[in-house]
């Protein structure tokens, strides 16, 4: 016979899912937010670096039109309301409300993509005009990639919430998704300033 192990506690009473920093996925999401935030910061630094090169900025072009970028800003900031609400009802594990929240967030997400398409059309530059055009397109594209991935995630989660896959862990998936959307929105604020305001200041 083997020697009996020396048990000091029984952890059977511990819960099997939790929201926020108690769960592993939340930390994983935060890790990717750090990585992507660094990417944004470096791209923004490159923008300022390139700004020091030519005589004028933007070099002989009109800055991007206000309209769509600012509409995007307002839309995104407004989307924080349904997003935070979804986060709250997911904490309460209220399935009906979570479904509503996710459907709304999916629709809002798709709308931001439409607006983003118009933004590209109103930049007043092409990526291959000059370095200014290049960095503007990359910044907007980088952010658009984040929109696409987050919306993809939201759509899949929404589908899951209408199938038999609903279980406590799905609600923590929803709250993590809300955290990520907050990041995508908050990243847009400085980027918006960079793309639309800075060229008008210098």
């Amino acid at each position: 016979m083997e020697k009996a192990p020396h048990f000091v506690t029984d952890l059977a009473h511990l819960p099997t899912s939790a929201h926020g920093p108690r769960s592993a996925t939340w930390w994983g999401t935060l890790g990717f937010i750090l990585i992507e935030g660094t990417g944004f910061a470096l791209a923004a630094a490159a923008y300022f670096y390139l700004m020091g090169q030519p005589e004028t900025w933007p070099p002989g072009q009109a800055p991007p039109d206000w309209l769509w970028g600012t509409a995007q800003l307002i839309l995104m900031l407004a989307s924080l309301l349904p997003n935070l609400w979804t986060d709250r009802v997911a904490h309460q594990e209220d399935l009906r409300k979570v479904r509503v929240g996710l459907v709304v967030m999916s629709a809002v997400g798709l709308l931001t993509l439409v607006v983003r398409a118009f933004e590209f059309g109103a930049l007043n530059c092409r990526w291959d005009d000059n370095a200014y055009g290049s960095i503007v397109w990359v910044l907007l594209g980088l952010h658009a990639t984040h929109l696409v991935t987050d919306i993809g995630d939201t759509l899949v989660l929404t589908a899951l919430m209408f199938t038999r896959h609903v279980e406590p862990r799905r609600y923590t998936d929803v709250t993590d998704n809300c955290v990520y959307w907050n990041f995508v929105v908050l990243a847009w604020v400085p980027l918006w300033g960079l793309l639309y305001v800075v060229p008008r200041l210098v």
């Binding site: 390139l50 090169q53 200014y132 290049s134 397109w137």
Partner: peptide
Amino acid sequence: GTHFFNPAEGGDALL
């Protein structure tokens, strides 16, 4: 055809 590192079009190799 971007110009990040192309000095002729406002880019910079030191970047």
